[in-house]
C-alpha cells in the first residue's frame, strides 16, 4: 500500500469519526438546541422537591428556558434551596411562580415558571418567593384513603 493511498484512507476515517462526533453533539445531543451560553442564576425555596434532580429542565409555557443547577438543603429553615440557571434571553417578573411538575404520570420532574404581573424583572441571584412543592404520590394516596375512611364512618 503506498503512502498517499494510506494517508487518504486514514484521512477519510478520521473525518468520518469527527463527523460522527459532531453529529452526536448536534443532532443527538443538545449542543445546538440548547446552547445556553450566557445564563443568570435565580434561587427558590421548596419545602419538598420530590424527585427533582440537578440538570432537570426549567420550563415556562412548555419551553425549556433553563436548567436546575444545584439543590442544597438549608438546615436553618429546613427547606431545599434550588438554584436554576436561566437563559439570558428570557426575563421573568419578580412575582414569578415556581412549581415542581411531573412530566406525565411517571415522568421526570421539572420546574415550571409562571409569570406574574410585576413590572420589575427578576435579576441575577434573585430569589423566587412564590413556590409550590412537588406533588408526592404517597401523600395523595394516603389523603384519599383517609377521606374514604372518614366518609364511611359518617
Amino acid at each position: 500500500m503506498n503512502r498517499i493511498k494510506l494517508d487518504a484512507w486514514v484521512g477519510i476515517f478520521v473525518a468520518l469519526g469527527l463527523i460522527a462526533l459532531m453529529g452526536l453533539a448536534m443532532k443527538v445531543g443538545n449542543l445546538t438546541s440548547n446552547d445556553i451560553k450566557t445564563t443568570y442564576y435565580v434561587t427558590a425555596n421548596f419545602e419538598n422537591i420530590g424527585g427533582l434532580k440537578p440538570r432537570a429542565p426549567v420550563k415556562s409555557a412548555g419551553v425549556v428556558v433553563g436548567r436546575v443547577d444545584s439543590i442544597v438543603f438549608d438546615t436553618k429553615i429546613y427547606e431545599a434551596i434550588v438554584t436554576m440557571s436561566i437563559d439570558e434571553r428570557y426575563v421573568f417578573p419578580k412575582d414569578t411562580f415556581a412549581n415542581i411538575y411531573t412530566a406525565g404520570l411517571l415522568g421526570e420532574q421539572y420546574i415550571g415558571l409562571e409569570a406574574g404581573g410585576d413590572p420589575d424583572n427578576l435579576e441575577a441571584n434573585d430569589k423566587i418567593t412564590q413556590t409550590q412543592d412537588a406533588v408526592v404520590l404517597e401523600k395523595l394516596i394516603s389523603q384519599f384513603l383517609y377521606n374514604q375512611a372518614s366518609k364511611e364512618e359518617e
Binding site: F13, V14, L16, G17, L18, I19, A20, L21, G23, L24, K27, V28
Partner: peptide, 16 residues
Amino acid sequence: IITMPLLASIFSMVGV
C-alpha cells in the same frame, strides 16, 4: 488511543 474514540463515535451515530 486515537482510533477507539473515533470508532465509538461512529458506532453511536450509525446506531442512532
